[in-house]
């Protein structure tokens, strides 16, 4: 016994050796997601006069590895809303499960007034976006973010085209054309040339919008190293959703690549 009550009953280091901390739990404070793991790249979307078109490629990358080449990143919620997910794929799948239970609950509570069983869209795209923004903001506030940037495309309660985004911080905004990730740099300028403002989007034909989005997907494939030429594209209009999940980029021309100089060993 010595004059240090704190030491009473404790093993002496000179007898037993220093405390071996390797038996303690290895992790520190409870860790939440610090970075995305398997990721999807850009989602691009734009409004046109009576609907919205949205597209995303079918690739899920593991860092620089093109890990899964058949992952669908567009999700149809109902006849009035489609979501496009950029960012972490497992978080996307978590949200998918959340949305499935939401839609189940919704349809159970209110199967639509028309009596038509296909009219189950009691949550329109705007409602869905509001809901998702709360989910995302709550998770960021809890320091446990869902590592996604989501585009919500569809129709609002007045059947007007609706397009808005929400990201892992809960930040929300709406515009006639939107893109996530790399697309925010590369695709948005292309889309804004076609429809610079809401007024222009309101006169834009569906074909022009679809072509612009396809063009943007092509440019992204040229320049985004984490992209794929297989993609999904959805058009949401009053008469429903047209979702194609196995499209291939058409009319590629890599001729421009021949003229690129300065990235590697070159003779000229």
């Amino acid at each position: 016994m010595n004059h240090l009550p704190q030491a009473w009953g404790r093993p002496r280091d000179d007898v037993y050796g220093a405390y071996n901390a390797s038996f303690l739990p290895q992790d520190g404070p409870k860790q939440h997601t610090q970075s995305p793991i398997v990721t999807g790249t850009s989602v691009v979307a734009m409004k046109f006069k009576d609907g919205v078109v949205v597209a995303a490629d079918n690739l899920a990358s593991y860092g620089s590895l093109a890990r899964f080449t058949d992952v669908k990143r567009l999700r149809q919620f109902n006849t009035r809303a489609v979501l496009g997910f950029g960012g972490d794929v497992s978080d996307m799948q978590h949200l998918d499960r959340l949305l499935t239970s939401l839609s189940l609950r919704e349809n159970y509570a209110d199967p639509g007034s028309s009596g038509d069983e296909t009219d189950t869209a009691s949550l329109d795209a705007k409602n869905l976006h509001t809901y998702l923004s709360k989910v995302m903001y709550k998770r960021r506030t809890d320091f446990n973010p869902l590592w996604n940037h989501i585009l919500v495309a569809g129709l609002d309660d007045a059947d007007k085209p609706f397009l808005a985004s929400v990201d892992l911080l809960g930040t929300t905004f709406s515009a006639p054309s939107l893109a996530t990730g790399f697309g925010a740099h590369l695709a948005v300028p292309i889309l804004r040339r076609v429809a610079p403002d809401e007024a222009a989007a309101e006169t834009l034909s569906m074909d022009d919008a679809v072509n612009a989005v396809k063009e943007a997907m092509k440019v992204l494939f040229y320049r985004d190293a984490r992209s794929l030429d297989k993609y999904s594209i959805a058009v949401i209009r009053k008469d429903g959703v047209q979702l194609k999940e196995d499209e291939k980029l058409e009319g590629q021309s890599w001729a421009f690549a021949e003229t690129i100089r300065g990235y590697g060993t070159q003779i000229h």
């Binding site: 030491a7 002496r12 000179d14 405390y19």
Partner: peptide, 15 residues
């Protein structure tokens, strides 16, 4: 004699 007062509560520093 030393006692392991300052021993870490975890093996590694938190990330």
């Amino acid at each position: 004699p030393g006692y392991s007062f300052t021993s870490p509560t975890t093996a590694s520093a938190p990330k």
